[in-house]
């Protein structure tokens, strides 16, 4: 479904990334701060350009396309720090998530019901300004907004960041539910245990390079991963 072969990314943060993902998979991208995880997602979304290499989505090269076309192909990103539209209501944020589909004249009523079903708390807060929601609710809204674009691939950048453990549990169980609904998921996380609980495979990044990739069981047992990201 997705093939990434980057030899040099924009501003040289990414050095050598080679990864592949099949439809329906949940893949975790692990790594410390500054290892290039966020830049990798931005490059797939079209916000950054690789200087050499290529990215393919369902066989089609996308590394020269602008972000607005990439989202139309079915890749949606829920960015780090949530990046909601803080002075708009929950429902306005959701509608904007479906912006390109609404422009085409598609009906998104059903999808809205679907995300309310996934995150019932958002329905209760429908009219509230996004900026006044709690951290957990904001993260839910960010994921819901990304889902409203109707993605085949959902990329989540640090969905657990700054949230209480209970909320993190809740969000990860919803991520699993989203995947069971047929959406492939690329998950960037510092919380390696949580990530490897839902992902079947993972890539470990260091200084903009893939230094390790394997199935979750192997990664969870790997000495380097345990030492660096699992806290011993």
């Amino acid at each position: 479904m997705v093939m990434v072969d980057i030899f040099l990314g924009e501003s040289s943060i990414l050095q050598e990334i080679s990864m592949e993902m099949a439809e329906g998979e949940v893949i975790a991208i692990l790594g410390a701060n500054g290892s290039g995880k966020t830049t990798l997602l931005k490059t797939i979304s079209g916000l950054c350009r690789p200087r050499s290499g290529e990215i393919r989505f369902n066989e089609r090269r996308i590394d020269r396309l602008p972000p607005e076309q990439i989202v139309r192909l079915g890749i949606s990103q829920c960015p780090e720090g949530r990046r909601l539209f803080p002075y708009m209501s929950v429902v306005e944020n959701l509608q904007l998530g479906a912006y390109w589909r609404l422009r085409k004249g598609e009906k998104v009523r059903e999808d809205q019901e679907k995300v309310y079903h996934l995150f019932p708390r958002l329905k209760e807060r429908e009219k509230q300004m996004a900026g006044t929601l709690s951290g957990g609710e904001q993260q839910m809204l960010a994921i819901a907004r990304a889902l409203m674009a109707g993605p085949k691939l959902l990329m989540l950048d640090e969905p657990s960041l700054g949230l209480a453990p209970l909320v993190v549990q809740e969000i990860f169980s919803t991520i699993r539910q989203i995947n069971q609904g047929g959406v492939s998921i690329l998950l960037v996380e510092q919380n390696a245990v949580m990530a490897l609980n839902v992902a079947s495979r993972g890539y470990v990044l260091e200084m903009g390079r893939v230094v390790l990739t394997d199935h979750r069981e192997t990664l969870l047992k790997d000495e380097r991963v345990r030492h660096a990201y699992l806290g011993g």
């Binding site: 916000l47 972000p67 960015p79 990046r83 803080p86 002075y87 708009m88 306005e92 904007l96 912006y99």
Partner: peptide, 19 residues
């Protein structure tokens, strides 16, 4: 709404497909 979206967060607006 897309006008306000670009004003509030340009990068997020790009990600939802706004030009």
């Amino acid at each position: 709404r897309t006008i306000r979206a670009v004003g509030q967060d340009r990068e997020a607006a790009l990600l939802i497909g706004v030009n």
